[in-house]
Design a protein around this nucleic acid. Structure first.
Lengths: 162, 162
DNA sequence: AAATATACGTCAGTATTGTTGACATATTAC
DNA sequence: GTAATATGTCAACAATACTGACGTATATTT
C-alpha cells in the first residue's frame, strides 16, 4: 500500500513540498552565513557588521535611513555597529552636498578589503551551486526567491539585470 | 556605450549575478521569517522557540542530540528554550525505550496548535511563490538551494520526496 | 524670520539568542 | 567495574535586537 496519502493544502500544493521549502530556506541560509560569521568572529565583529559592510559596498554613498530600510532594523541597533565601523575606519561618512543632514556612507580601502574577504567565500558557494544546477535552474531559483520576499524588496531587483 | 563591462569571476559567472544571489537570500529569508516572529512575540517566545517547535513537529520522537545537530547550536542554548517549552507543555519528553538515556521529543496538542499557527503563514507564502513561479522554476529553486547548503544538510533531503 | 519637519546621533534599559567552561546524573557499552 | 554517551544545569558573558526619550543640525514650510 502507498506510504500515506499526500496532504494537499488549500493552495493545491502538497504540504510536504511546502515544508520542504521551509527547510531548504533554513539550511541553505544557515550554511551560507556560517563561514563568513567565522571570519567575522576573529575580528570580533558579527553578522550585523557584515551586512552593513556589504550593503555600503553595494551602494556607495547610501544614506543612513536607506540602509536602515534595507536592513529592517532600528536606528539604535544600527548605530552601535555603524559607529564601530566608522571609528575603526572601515566606513567613511561624508556630509551630503545636496542635503547637509545626510551622512553618506562609503567603504574605505580597509572596508573594501574586509568586504572582499567575507563575500569571496559566499560568492564561491553560490557559483558552485549555480554551475551545478545549470542556467534554467538558476532562473527558477530567482523567480521563487523573488516570490517569497515582500513587494518592497522585490522591486529592488526588478530595475536591475532583468 | 555599454554600461560597463561585466565582471567575470574565476568561476565564469558574472559577479553581478553572484551578488544578486546573496541579496535574494538575504531579503527572502528576512521577509520569510518576519511574520512568524511577530506571532511569537505575542507569546513572549522567539525565533528559537519556533525552530524547536518546527523540527520536533517534523520529526516526532527526535532525540535532543539530533535536534542540536539540526539547529547547529549548543546544548546550553537549546536547554533554555526547550526547557521553557517543556515546562509550558508545548513539548513532551518520553524516555527512550531502546536507550533509556535519550529523551524523545514530541509536540503536545498545544504545541501542535502553535506550530500550525506559525507555519500556516509561511506555507502560504511559499505556496504563492511556487504557484507564481511554476513547477520548473520550483525544481530549479530546489536544485540551487540544495547546492548552497553543506553536504551534511543536503542528504537530509535526498532520502525523501525525490 | 519663525515654526515645523527631517536626518542623524545618543543615552538608558531590556529581551532573546547565542557562546564557553565546568560539573552532575543516568544509562549503556566494553 | 570503568569508560563512554545522552542529557541536564549553573554561571558568566557577548552580540543583536528592541522601546522610549531626548539632542542637534539642516531643510522646508508658512
Amino acid at each position: 500500500m502507498p506510504n500515506s496519502k499526500p496532504v494537499i493544502s488549500s493552495s493545491g500544493l502538497r504540504d510536504e513540498d511546502l515544508r520542504q521549502a521551509i527547510e531548504l530556506l533554513f539550511f541553505a541560509y544557515r550554511d551560507f552565513t556560517a563561514r563568513a560569521d567565522a571570519i567575522l568572529a576573529k575580528q570580533s565583529f558579527g553578522r550585523a557588521h557584515h551586512r552593513v559592510i556589504y550593503f555600503v559596498g553595494r551602494h556607495p554613498g547610501i544614506t543612513v535611513s536607506a540602509l536602515l530600510e534595507i536592513l529592517g532594523i532600528t536606528k539604535q541597533s544600527l548605530a552601535r555597529v555603524l559607529g564601530q565601523l566608522v571609528r575603526e575606519h572601515y566606513i567613511l561618512q561624508k556630509k551630503g552636498t545636496q542635503d547637509g543632514r545626510q551622512r553618506l556612507l562609503h567603504l574605505t580601502d580597509k572596508g573594501r578589503e574586509l568586504e572582499r574577504m567575507l563575500t569571496t567565500e559566499q560568492r564561491a558557494r553560490i557559483a558552485a551551486a549555480y554551475k551545478d544546477a545549470g542556467p534554467s535552474a538558476v532562473e527558477g531559483f530567482r523567480k521563487v526567491m523573488l516570490g517569497i520576499m515582500n513587494d518592497d524588496a522585490r522591486w529592488r531587483f526588478k530595475t536591475r539585470g532583468d
